[in-house]
Simulated scan of single mutants.
Amino acid sequence: MAKRPLNVGLIGGGGGAFIVQPHQRAIHFDGTRRVTVAALHPDAKIAQSEAEQWDYPIKGYDSYDEMIEQESAKPVGERIDYALIVTPNHVHFDPAIKCVRAGIPVFCEKPLTINLDEAKQLVAAVKENNVPFAVSHTYLGHWTSRFSRFIVTSGLLGDVRWVDSYYLQGWLAERTEDSGNAQAEWRVDPKKSGASLCGGDIGTHALMQLRYVTGLNVQRVQAHLETYVKGRMLDDHFTSYVELSNGGKGMVRASQIAIGHKNDLGIEVNGTKGTLSWRQEFPEEVKIQLPGQPDRTYFRGAVSANDGFLGDLPEDLMAEPNVPAGHPEAFHDAFARLHRCFEQDVRLYNDGKPFDCDGNLYANIDDGYTGMAFIEAAVKSSQDGNVWVDM
């Protein structure tokens, strides 16, 4: 028999928030999940009004406190199966920890919290209550990110020597926050964004891409946070030199004042046997360069095992693409893959069975904590004169 669709509750997402739209599309992508309830805004009247005007019928709650209290009192099958938190950064911690303590799994936008102390508390709550928890690092959902991870962690490039992981945008090159752009307004406010604007907003994505693709962790950070737009209290340009857990080195860098760049997340991994490169704006391709050989480009959906570089390929990895090569997967597909994988663990949790949340298929609570530890170390390094700071 067909499985019951999981019920998902939105926390945040009102007021024209961009990020809720790809999430809610991804939730409905497979027909096995659906948004049923929402607390869309901190103002109860606005929350109810926006729920009434939603694109499809949902139950609106006055607040996330009301939603968590009422939904957690319902039996499995009637309650929400997980909550999706798409609020500004300063409203991640409170609803997340309340959901976790109520036994409700959480899919939370990044960064995890606005400081390391909150992250520590949230990690402890997740471990204590043994609840599935995902952090929305979207770009891990691209099949080519998973393929890149397989290549690097299988040793096909040899030992990792150097990694350049970056995320470049240009939308904050001027004072966008003065033009009524709500997305810019909260991001430049340290009370709502945290200690770093550029690093927290997109630098954490670059860090996660490095850690996921290489399977390595960052041990030490030497960072330089800069503010180019006059009057801003937080960085809009972020550069860090990092030491990796295998002794290799790398850069995690980000900019939101790089005019002409739109959503340019990319990574290059230099190993002792070859180089891998990948860019989010060309998400169907993984490029490999080997000494003395023509460059190779692998396309999602058109990868063959035992081709002279690749050996055998994992069956589960090869089974993931659901459209043929040349029919591009993209941003929404990446979101959907993350929700699809999280769904598997939520269903196991509902059935009282062990679940993984091991970071192989989506970013977990420990990845979220690492992102906050990285930002704290980078800010300290920059403030102290670009000294090395241990993670």
Results as ranks from 00 to 15, higher is better:
residue 142 H to K: 13
residue 234 L to C: 05
residue 337 R to K: 06
residue 58 I to T: 00
residue 326 G to H: 06
residue 73 A to W: 01
residue 85 I to T: 05
residue 198 C to G: 06
residue 59 K to H: 11
residue 380 K to W: 07
residue 15 G to T: 08
residue 149 R to N: 11
residue 122 L to T: 02
residue 292 G to D: 14
residue 12 G to H: 01
residue 101 R to Y: 00
residue 204 T to W: 00
residue 5 P to L: 11
residue 70 Q to R: 12
residue 225 L to W: 04
residue 281 E to Q: 14
residue 104 I to Y: 02
residue 390 D to Q: 13
residue 259 I to S: 10
residue 245 S to L: 04
residue 132 P to M: 02
residue 228 Y to A: 03
residue 130 N to L: 02
residue 192 K to V: 08
residue 119 A to L: 05
residue 174 E to P: 00
residue 261 H to K: 08
residue 222 Q to G: 05
residue 223 A to V: 15
residue 267 I to C: 03
residue 291 P to N: 06
residue 304 S to E: 15
residue 268 E to V: 12
residue 287 K to D: 11
residue 79 R to K: 15
residue 278 W to C: 07
residue 28 H to K: 03
residue 348 L to V: 01
residue 1 M to H: 12
residue 202 I to C: 03
residue 130 N to E: 11
residue 324 P to R: 12
residue 316 D to V: 10
residue 376 E to D: 13
residue 177 E to H: 07
residue 307 D to E: 08
residue 80 I to D: 04
residue 55 D to C: 03
residue 264 D to I: 06
residue 360 N to V: 07
residue 302 A to I: 05
residue 130 N to D: 14
residue 223 A to N: 09
residue 106 V to T: 10
residue 157 L to G: 05
residue 249 K to F: 09
residue 208 M to Q: 14
residue 347 R to D: 11
residue 128 E to V: 11
residue 169 Q to N: 11
residue 124 A to N: 12
residue 236 D to V: 03
residue 31 G to I: 00
residue 114 I to V: 15
residue 267 I to G: 02
residue 177 E to L: 03
residue 75 P to K: 09
residue 313 L to D: 10
residue 291 P to Q: 05
residue 258 A to Y: 04
residue 376 E to F: 08
residue 50 E to L: 08
residue 89 N to T: 09
residue 141 G to L: 02
residue 386 N to W: 10
residue 172 L to I: 03
residue 174 E to M: 10
residue 287 K to C: 12
residue 367 D to H: 11
residue 152 V to G: 02
residue 319 A to E: 14
residue 174 E to W: 07
residue 13 G to L: 02
residue 118 E to Q: 15
residue 33 R to F: 01
residue 250 G to C: 01
residue 112 L to A: 08
residue 354 P to Y: 10
residue 331 F to K: 00
residue 375 I to G: 01
residue 3 K to T: 13
residue 174 E to K: 10
residue 299 F to N: 09
residue 9 G to P: 09
residue 329 E to Y: 05
residue 321 P to L: 05
residue 88 P to H: 04
residue 341 C to K: 10
residue 32 T to Y: 01
residue 15 G to N: 11
residue 110 K to E: 09
residue 52 E to K: 15
residue 113 T to H: 04
residue 114 I to E: 00
residue 156 L to I: 07
residue 194 G to F: 00
residue 263 N to F: 13
residue 216 L to N: 01
residue 269 V to S: 06
residue 320 E to V: 13
residue 297 T to N: 10
residue 102 A to H: 04
residue 188 V to W: 04
residue 175 R to P: 06
residue 46 I to V: 12
residue 242 V to I: 12
residue 252 V to T: 02
residue 304 S to H: 15
residue 120 K to Q: 13
residue 16 G to T: 03
residue 391 M to V: 15
residue 296 R to Y: 11
residue 276 L to S: 09
residue 189 D to L: 11
residue 11 I to K: 01
residue 50 E to S: 06
residue 135 V to H: 04
residue 72 S to H: 07
residue 90 H to W: 12
residue 34 R to F: 00
residue 281 E to F: 14
